[in-house]
Design a protein around this nucleic acid. Structure first.
Lengths: 252, 252
DNA sequence: AAGTGGTCTAGACCACCGA
DNA sequence: CGGTGGTCTAGACCACTTT
């Protein structure tokens, strides 16, 4: 039997003090998130049952349940009645529904196709260092690609990744689903993104790549993505033509 | 003592059948949502304690707790340890944080000021009937206003409301916080909005109202809002200048 | 001190899945 | 059928707010 990481005298569990008080289920949750971040539990695989975890950690099943429920709410886990609890996967389907918000104007959600323009390893510029929390002289992998929806080329993407993690990407073919690739090849799970949207007039170079007139209006999506350890792992700026597509945002 | 709405033979509560099975806490939640929608519980006011509700409804406190927790997650209620449970309010603060997503480029969230251009009651056009689920010949209240952030006029808004509910709005002064007004004067609580964003070139008339050049790029936010009963209660299109502001979207 | 919501436990039973 | 997660209960104790 594994060591019982949480088997501590009852009254010490919550530290007994008001400041820094962390409920037991929270401690359990944090411990289990560690297992995800460390790769002890692989995406798509099932994790031990509530009973097993409760016994292993020396807490009640109800406490484990609450920890697992919060993780399911954070979409780190997927629970299936009768089957078990599974580590969430960043499949194309998942990405499509949660991170890719462009739809056709009749509300269809389509898989975007990608056409690579370039990829390489470079010294990070000021903006990249700021967005990715890098230091002086650090390198980034830069990716530029075009994406199309319903056969129409409507997105130009400039992506920057920390070289320290992703340098190996610079010299190889890249899949359409980058987040799935980050997870499977680098153990980096994107769990949160923050986007800033603006309307701009396309400059000549970008308009040419998208084969539209200079100064055509475009929607820019400036996105930073963070992983399980809250590290910024990707900075991406997308230039989108929204004549026949829109960015969907549902609140609540 | 009020009639015990849920005091039914134990085995009938879940209907006993697999199809249409609704957990007890779900039934409690739906019953309590009814009280909100009917105005029995007013925004900002406290509701009875878990113990009281459990006794009144003939279920355990744990079941009431789960119902209240889900409602808090839906942001219909606000729970405060030691104080009680309160009906959520659509205060300016609340709106600002949850429905108004424009920020300055240094990430400050500012209260927008509003300047009314016009308001009136009209027969709904095709687009309005479709967005607001109205019938032939139904009327709408149309509102047009300019809004400014940090002293700069950057938003032009066209709003349409079902006349059947909001006709009284047509002849009076309108507050800056419309959603709060819908709640306090019409008992309409907006709980969900869906937005479609596009980048467009402003037409001459709208550019003139915003005092910018013809064909200036603008971010359009096409929003439909629904109330507690899932009725569409507002259609709003905002034209935003995003030179010094952006639309913020955080996922997860 | 009294009352509220928050945590934790233990146990029973239900719905669902797969073998 | 056994095992999983999901619901429901009852009771104890904790943290927080108000009186």
């Amino acid at each position: 039997m594994p060591t019982a990481a949480l088997k501590v005298p009852d009254r010490d569990r919550g530290r007994g003090r008001s400041v820094g008080y962390r409920p037991l289920y929270r401690q359990v949750r944090d411990l289990l998130v560690r297992r995800l971040a460390d790769g002890q539990w692989q995406p798509g695989k099932s994790i031990p049952s509530e009973q097993q975890l409760a016994h292993e950690l020396g807490v009640s099943q109800g406490t484990v349940r609450k920890a697992l429920d919060t993780m399911a709410a954070e979409r780190l886990l997927v629970r299936q009645q009768g089957r078990g609890t599974f580590v969430a996967e960043l499949t194309e389907q998942h990405i499509l529904f949660h991170f890719f918000k462009l739809r056709t104007d009749d509300d269809a959600q389509l898989f975007p196709a990608s056409q690579m323009i370039g990829v390489g390893l470079w010294r990070a510029d000021d903006a990249e260092r700021e967005r990715l929390a890098l230091g002086d002289g650090d390198e980034v992998v830069r990716i530029r690609r075009l994406r199309s929806l319903a056969g129409e080329t409507v997105i130009l993407e400039d992506i920057a990744l920390p070289g320290a993690i992703f340098a190996a990407l610079a010299g190889c073919d890249l899949p359409n689903n980058l987040y799935g690739c980050y997870a499977s090849r680098f153990g980096v799970t994107v769990v949160q993104v923050s986007e800033r949207l603006k309307a701009v007039a396309l400059d000549g170079a970008r308009a040419a790549l998208l084969k539209v007139a200079d100064a055509t209006p475009a929607l820019t999506i400036d996105r930073v993505a963070w992983d399980l350890d809250a590290r910024p792992v990707e900075w991406r700026v997308s230039y989108c033509l929204t004549e026949r597509f829109h960015y969907r945002s549902d609140v609540r």
